[in-house]
Amino acid sequence: MCSSRQILTILRETEDFRESSNELKIVQGIFNIQISFFIYRENYRLLKRNLKSNYNDIETITSNNQKRAHFQKKIIKDLHNTITSARSFLEYFDKEKSFLENDFHCFMKELRNYLVHQDHIPLISKLKYNQLEQKRFESFNTFFFNEYLDKQIEEYPKRNGLKKAKLFIHKIGNEPSLNEILTSYDEKLNEFYKKLIMNIISAYYTALKNLVQEINSLNIKLKNCNLNIDTHSPLTEAKLKYLKLLLKNKETA
């Protein structure tokens, strides 16, 4: 059992550590990246979930125009939120603009702008059959989007992103699967996110290993005084566990 004096001493020690540790600021930067990516991922999951729900409801493809109009509105909202949150993540963390300026992201960015201006996305529900299953998907008709890009290029000839978006359309064709576009974009964004995190871990590996040891030492003192770790430690137990996992992944990479 700790005395009041001992409790005040360990609390002061943890507070001083929290304010002075540069390594702790690096870890906070990692969690800022994680939170921003989480916001995008939640929007993406909702969009995929609503698409899947629509695929399972054959009525929206055969007879119920009102239901399909409602589905279109939901998809427009979810698609806009997904692309906007992805762009927010990239604008803040893609310092070298390696992802921001590639033709895939330029296509997604301009698709979001198109949705804002047109409040419509030309989707065509299709069915594919094989020996095992019937597969339904939403095909994205790029004709009107292409026309929109042509007008934008004419009005803003110096915006290279518009030309890159058109270049990407040439790659995917006139009626690509919306689901495949979204899945591919998420895979590339997830790859960028993981690389971003691991680059930080690699750059500060030794310092972060030492940070874990220092926090473990502080946590032992907190526990000895029956003080809650998540309340008083510089890192909650969940965050410390995640940091240890990142360091372990670096060791086994």
Rank of each mutant, 00 (worst) to 15 (best):
residue 111 L to F: 09
residue 111 L to W: 02
residue 111 L to Y: 02
residue 112 R to M: 11
residue 113 N to G: 08
residue 114 Y to H: 08
residue 117 H to Q: 13
residue 117 H to S: 13
residue 117 H to F: 02
residue 118 Q to V: 11
residue 119 D to F: 10
residue 120 H to F: 15
residue 122 P to L: 00
residue 122 P to F: 01
residue 127 L to F: 12
residue 128 K to W: 03
residue 130 N to C: 03
residue 132 L to A: 08
residue 133 E to S: 13
residue 134 Q to T: 15
residue 135 K to S: 09
residue 135 K to M: 10
residue 136 R to W: 12
residue 137 F to C: 10
residue 137 F to T: 14
residue 137 F to E: 13
residue 139 S to L: 11
residue 139 S to G: 15
residue 141 N to C: 06
residue 142 T to Q: 10
residue 142 T to N: 05
residue 142 T to L: 11
residue 143 F to K: 14
residue 144 F to V: 10
residue 146 N to L: 11
residue 148 Y to N: 07
residue 149 L to I: 11
residue 150 D to V: 03
residue 150 D to M: 11
residue 152 Q to F: 03
residue 153 I to C: 08
residue 154 E to F: 14
residue 154 E to T: 11
residue 155 E to S: 15
residue 156 Y to N: 15
residue 157 P to L: 12
residue 157 P to R: 12
residue 158 K to I: 12
residue 159 R to W: 07
residue 160 N to G: 14
residue 162 L to A: 06
residue 164 K to P: 01
residue 165 A to L: 05
residue 165 A to W: 06
residue 165 A to M: 10
residue 167 L to C: 11
residue 168 F to Y: 15
residue 168 F to G: 09
residue 168 F to P: 04
residue 169 I to L: 15
residue 170 H to A: 15
residue 170 H to Y: 13
residue 170 H to W: 12
residue 172 I to A: 09
residue 172 I to W: 05
residue 174 N to Y: 00
residue 175 E to I: 13
residue 179 N to V: 07
residue 180 E to W: 08
residue 184 S to D: 14
residue 184 S to N: 12
residue 185 Y to A: 12
residue 186 D to S: 14
residue 187 E to P: 04
residue 189 L to K: 01
residue 189 L to W: 05
residue 191 E to M: 08
residue 191 E to F: 11
residue 191 E to A: 11
residue 192 F to W: 13
residue 194 K to S: 09
residue 195 K to E: 11
residue 196 L to I: 05
residue 197 I to Y: 07
residue 199 N to H: 07
residue 199 N to D: 14
residue 200 I to Q: 01
residue 200 I to L: 02
residue 200 I to E: 02
residue 200 I to Y: 05
residue 201 I to D: 04
residue 201 I to F: 04
residue 202 S to V: 05
residue 205 Y to Q: 05
residue 209 K to M: 03
residue 210 N to K: 14
residue 212 V to F: 05
residue 213 Q to P: 00
residue 213 Q to M: 08
residue 214 E to H: 05
residue 214 E to G: 00
residue 215 I to Q: 06
residue 215 I to R: 03
residue 215 I to K: 06
residue 216 N to H: 12
residue 219 N to R: 09
residue 219 N to E: 14
residue 220 I to A: 08
residue 221 K to F: 03
residue 222 L to S: 00
residue 223 K to M: 07
residue 223 K to F: 01
residue 224 N to T: 02
residue 224 N to S: 08
residue 225 C to W: 04
residue 226 N to F: 09
residue 226 N to C: 05
residue 227 L to Q: 06
residue 228 N to V: 02
residue 230 D to A: 06
residue 231 T to R: 13
residue 232 H to V: 03
residue 234 P to H: 07
residue 234 P to G: 05
residue 235 L to K: 03
residue 235 L to Q: 01
residue 235 L to F: 04
residue 236 T to W: 00
residue 236 T to F: 03
residue 237 E to D: 10
residue 239 K to T: 05
residue 241 K to Y: 09
